[in-house]
Amino acid sequence: MKTRVKCLLVDDLDDNLLTMSALLRADDVEVLTARSGREALELLLVHDVALALLDVQMPEMDGFELAELMRSSERTNQVPLIFVTAGAREMQPLFKGYDAGAVDFLFKPIEPWVLRSKAQVFFDLYRARQQLSDELRERTETLRLNELFTAVLAHDLRDPLNAMMTAAMLIERQAELESVQRSAARIVSSGRSMSRMISDVLDLARARLAGGIPVHREPAQLGRVAQRVIDEQRLAHPQRAVELHSQGDLQGIWDEDRLAQAVGNLVGNALVHGRPDLPVVLRLDGSAIDDVHLSVISAGTISTELLPHIFDPFRGSTRPRASRAGLGLGLYIVDQIARAHRGRVAVCCEGGHTTFTLSLPRRLA
């Protein structure tokens, strides 16, 4: 059965309303009638209509004035309008009508089959639009529930994972056999990788469900954050060189832990994907009054196909899925942390090098 739609007829003459109502009314079409622009506006406050047919020549408020009021309202500015007139087919009124938002004109006396055919087109378009809207709403809700389930699952996985890692570290310390120690160390290493993945999934859920990653701002020093990240990365990549260059004032009001997470993701990404024989360079520039800029430079470039999607979740990894140690969320989380600080992150490839630049306002305006 077709979705029932509503059609609005506006005319100051009862005979015209009766005639058009009889032509358009059907089991799946409800006809609303108004004898003035004021009555029409009152009906539009209550009903969603698929089409409005407006008589041009009405006292107090003519069809053009009513159309302009409808176009100025967010509730009714998308309603298709057909003007009905008994006047001559002069160009000036036509231009005025189309400027007011008309999609068509009908001239009296109205041919019944013309009225029905034109109205049916807009009824079908309205039904199709409603169906698409319902499907979008349903899929959006399904996606929201999936993300909520993922967030709850990731949160609940932390407890058994922590218990497993605690037991593995205890075995690693107390085991006498070297093979047992190695096995325990592998369990601990895998557990830490899983913990990072769970944290990434939780951050993804926060960004999607809560409108962004939460941050807790307090006075912080970017140079201290960068040095901490470099020390951690050198332990994870002892064979790689990381250089730090800084200038200017590096103080700001930021979430230091989130900032360390963003810098760690950028430096870690550069160490993994950059050329291993050349150093990763970290530059801090605090010479500007309002903003601080952090750049991570590594040898190598990113493909032009990937570059537009580099900060998209699950699409921004520069490696194939099988070779990834994570979920491909690192750069997406960097972008979300930058947005949470009202900053931005950008990438540039030139001269055989890739540069990620994180720009942060010193304080929230």
Rank of each mutant, 00 (worst) to 15 (best):
R182M: 09
A167C: 02
I171V: 15
G191K: 03
L132M: 02
D203T: 11
M164H: 09
E172M: 06
G211Q: 07
D134I: 06
S195H: 06
P219Q: 07
L153C: 06
S199C: 01
P219Y: 08
R192M: 08
I171R: 01
E172A: 15
F149H: 11
A185M: 10
A207P: 02
N146S: 12
T150H: 01
G211R: 06
S193M: 10
A207M: 04
D134P: 00
R139N: 09
S199H: 02
T150C: 09
D203S: 12
E141I: 08
D200R: 04
S189C: 08
A163T: 14
L209T: 10
S133R: 03
E147A: 10
T140H: 01
S179F: 05
A154I: 13
A154E: 08
H216K: 06
A151S: 12
S195A: 12
R137C: 06
T150Q: 10
S195K: 02
L145A: 12
M194C: 14
L161H: 05
S190D: 15
L148S: 09
D200M: 08
S195R: 04
R196F: 08
M197F: 04
M197T: 12
E172F: 06
M197I: 12
S133I: 02
A185I: 14
I171G: 00
D156N: 07
R186E: 15
F149A: 14
R137D: 09
L170N: 10
L204F: 14
L161Q: 04
S195D: 06
R144N: 11
L132S: 00
T140S: 09
A175T: 08
G211H: 07
R173S: 11
N162P: 00
L177Y: 07
P219C: 09
V188K: 05
I171C: 01
G211F: 08
R158E: 12
Q181G: 14
E178P: 05
A205N: 00
I198P: 00
S179Y: 04
T140G: 10
L209D: 08
M194W: 11
R158N: 05
H155S: 13
E138I: 02
R144V: 14
A220K: 01
H216F: 09
L145H: 13
M164T: 13
E172S: 12
L177V: 15
T150Y: 01
S189P: 01
D156C: 02
V180A: 12
D159S: 13
A205Y: 06
E138R: 05
R144H: 13
L202Y: 03
A184H: 03
A205F: 05
A151R: 04
S195F: 08
A210P: 00
P160G: 03
I213A: 04
L143Q: 11
R206F: 08
D203R: 05
M164E: 10
L204R: 07
N146Y: 02
S189Q: 14
S190C: 11
A220D: 03
A185D: 11
